[in-house]
Computed example of a mutant assay.
Amino acid sequence: MALVRLLFIAFVVLSVIYLSLSLYSRARAKDRLEAEWDAGGFDIPRDNYVRAGLTDYDGSLRRKLILGVYVVPMSLVCIIVYLVNFA
């Protein structure tokens, strides 16, 4: 029961960290796209350029790597619990 409580609390904390990282990374991508548009001479409006770039960002590897915030710590906790109890 203690493990379930630990994993639940860890999940909540990791969710806050994931949300923060996700919002920060998306804001940085938006700033980068706006800076690219300001620096270059694009034919399309700024909002359309940024929206298209953020759509590309949503499918990018960086966005998927942020999910490691959940996978790595939870895996380490499970491995440690297994090694302490069964090894």
Rank of each mutant, 00 (worst) to 15 (best):
V50C: 05
D58N: 13
V72W: 10
V12M: 05
Y18P: 00
P45N: 07
E34V: 11
D43A: 15
P73A: 02
L6V: 00
V84F: 02
R26E: 09
V4Q: 01
A52W: 12
D38L: 13
A35Q: 14
S22E: 03
G53P: 00
D31Q: 14
L3N: 02
L21A: 15
I17Y: 06
T55M: 11
P45Q: 01
L6R: 00
I44A: 15
D31G: 07
Y49E: 13
V72P: 10
M74Y: 07
F42G: 01
F86M: 06
L83V: 04
L7I: 15
M74K: 00
P45F: 00
S75G: 10
L21D: 01
Y24R: 12
R46C: 04
P45S: 03
P45M: 09
L83Y: 04
D43H: 11
Y49P: 00
I79V: 11
S75Y: 04
P73N: 05
V13G: 10
R46E: 01
S20D: 10
G41M: 08
Y57F: 13
D58F: 10
G41K: 14
G40H: 12
L61D: 01
R32E: 15
I79Q: 02
L33N: 02
R28A: 08
T55V: 14
L76N: 03
I80M: 06
R62Y: 06
R26A: 13
V71T: 09
V16Q: 03
T55E: 15
L6S: 02
G40I: 13
Y18W: 15
A39S: 15
A52L: 14
C78K: 03
L67D: 13
D43Q: 13
D31A: 14
V16M: 07
V13S: 06
V13H: 04
Y57P: 03
I9R: 08
A39M: 14
Y82G: 03
V71H: 02
G40L: 14
Y24P: 02
E34G: 05
L6I: 08
K30S: 15
Y82I: 05
L33P: 00
V71Q: 03
R63I: 04
N48D: 15
L61V: 08
V13R: 01
V16Y: 07
K30P: 12
R28I: 08
D58G: 13
R26G: 07
F11S: 10
D43L: 14
F42K: 05
I9F: 06
Y24F: 10
V16G: 04
Y49C: 13
L65V: 07
L65M: 09
F11Y: 09
L61S: 05
Y49H: 10
S25Q: 13
F86L: 05
D58L: 13
S15M: 08
Y18G: 00
I17L: 06
V77Q: 04
I17C: 01
Y24N: 11
